[in-house]
Design a protein around this nucleic acid. Structure first.
Lengths: 211, 211, 211, 211
DNA sequence: TATGAATGAGAGTTCATTCAT
DNA sequence: CATGAATGAACTCTCATTCAT
């Protein structure tokens, strides 16, 4: 009947992964509201009721996508920074940025799902929470560096700087994914220059460079 | 019954402005897809058909919102920069940033409508085009500064830096609007430090300061 | 302002004719339901309220169209037959058919409005009544001819034959209008052959019968 | 509450037939534009979304109706003619006409859906195509008869005669359905007299000619 | 005489979600 | 474990029609 493939009974874990995979793709390409459960189910190769049985609702499904993808991204960045634990702050930042841009480049759909500032959606909360986690992580790095550098930076300054850094990283990652020929390393280097050395210095050709 | 107000026949221009005002509010708070024409019409104090008669369709209405608000924002920034036309690049950038954050703070709904990276929406194009215009404007400033400074910056570098600057500005503006007690001037100053002086220098307490 | 033309106050009769003209065109090309009062008003060069003021409602407007056009068509046919009043029945029929096809060819929009068997429309009645009038007229001709020919034809036979003749005339007229290169005279001649050569035999009581 | 019947889950094929049945009734009685999907769904005893799920859209639903009914009508006529394959042309025509009028009498709604010359509707095409098929079929019969009879009839003459015959048949069928006491056989016999006695002479090249 | 302003009512269509099997 | 069948609710959009001037 040819249905054999679709009819096969798979263990729950596998099915769930298929579904979330499909969902990430749909959400990434059409946005939350425009993506339809029909489409996701079809792309996953299952019936709609099964999606509901396993993932609960559209909202929960989206949350699951965000959590899975944000976790992976955060993990990649954390691992990058971890690997440079003994190096000075700038090298640690570099390692983090490189990991981030690499991940975004290699998982464009995941990045699309995570990047938008979806406002009114029912889960503004979830997405914002994930982003805050990232920003907090970045703020930690900056705070550390500030401590080591002996500069005078207040707590709110650190938050604001983290927001700025995160925003520029997001913007650049999206731009890099959309612009052909831009590698993750280049994007990371540009940002490193921008963020670490500052535009004022760049103008004077005093560039910071990796390695 | 208070209907007196609602029944009055106003000239087209006035009604249109009311409608776009209402639309900006709804789109800002709920996003394009989630906002409903019913709601917008009600908030504007008119019937739905009138909205269609004047603005055409949901998509056209959204486009009208974007265009109006983007135009105003761009105008404010351009005016700010214009006012510092004779000053050095850093002062011009500062003037632009200050105008930007001020506008975003004073028109939070307008900023919300403009900021999201709505992906799958039918007008990704329109929104992206407006953003590109802004980024292009910023790139122009950076390019100029680069020329004056004599530094070596390629064209794509300029684009990337503009993306980074725009992204950090967007991120900070949203954060500033959401965080109580943060003024536009503070946000602008933080970004100026971040962008112009660079994190590396900040750590050494070498801060750039306005005036 | 250039509005001069449109603003000029015309006498009621003229305006009404403009409106019915426009209505006939719209109804002919799009059908009753699909035609919109907006469109008709615009085509007539007046505002919608004026159409309502003069013609009452969409239904009444359509009725006015039907009445005017059906009257004209009937008049043309009657005049044709009248002109052959002293000739034998076949010549009278020929004169009527020729007048009919000529009118249909020269007023295609009028013919389109009159021809369709619009069923569920609110004025099925009006249209059917006009058609019945025509069919009755035809039945009269056939009845006369039958009387003169001395054949045996019952009243219901006459009705049925009139229906058949009317149906074939309608069908041919529409076909002739849609088929390039077919003149009214040709169409009339074909129908005359089809109908009269047959009717001629009927008059002589030489009936074809089943089994 | 009687919901038992309505709640039962029927296989798709059955439901689809119910829906098309209901649609034929509604379209027949009110015309395409005036019929509403709500009404059709209710008459079919299902919810509107199910109609859309199975039949796609109002237009597709109408097309489905036309196709089904036209197919059945054509089949009935073809079968009738087939059964008289070995008989002379007049008997073949008689068989076809009898089958046609019988079908129209037994399926009045189907006949109503097929008969109107709906003009501006989006599917003028579909309906016209079905009619052309019928007319072509008729033209074939006439052409054959003309060939056998040795008469002089051009190709366009055949087309025109087919149009005339089809038109008279349509007109008579509608009249017969509306007039109490008229049987299909009577209507067919009347048309046979009208058409064949005429055609019979045409076959002998005894043409009536104007002037 | 003529119109710009405004609307009530209803159309087609879609979608997340749930039974019954 | 898995699904075909089915729906309530909501949305965008259109249209005939009427005030107020």
């Amino acid at each position: 009947m040819g249905d054999a493939v679709r009819t096969r009974r798979l263990p729950r874990g596998v099915r769930e992964r298929q579904m979330v995979d499909a969902a990430v793709r749909c959400f990434a390409r059409q946005g939350y509201q425009a993506a339809s459960m029909d489409e996701i189910a079809e792309l996953a190769g299952v019936s709609k009721p099964l999606v509901y049985l396993y993932l609960g609702s559209k909202e929960e499904l989206f949350t699951a996508c965000i959590r899975r993808e944000a976790g992976a991204l955060l993990g990649a960045v954390a691992a990058g920074v971890e690997g440079a634990a003994d190096l000075p702050p700038d090298e640690r930042l570099w390692a983090g940025l490189l990991a981030f841009f690499t991940y975004a480049a290699e998982h464009p759909d995941a990045w699309l799902v995570l990047s938008p500032r979806t406002q009114g959606e029912p889960f503004a909360g979830e997405l914002a929470r994930m982003r805050d986690e990232v920003v907090g992580f970045v703020a930690g790095l900056i705070g550390e560096a500030a401590g080591e550098g002996g500069g005078v930076v207040t707590g709110r300054d650190v938050d604001a700087l983290a927001q700025a850094l995160a925003g520029s990283a997001e913007s650049l990652a999206t731009w890099a994914n959309e612009t052909p020929g831009v590698t993750a390393k280049e994007a990371a280097a540009t940002l490193m220059n921008f963020a670490w050395a500052g535009l004022g210095n760049l103008m004077k050709s005093e560039r910071w460079s990796p390695r």
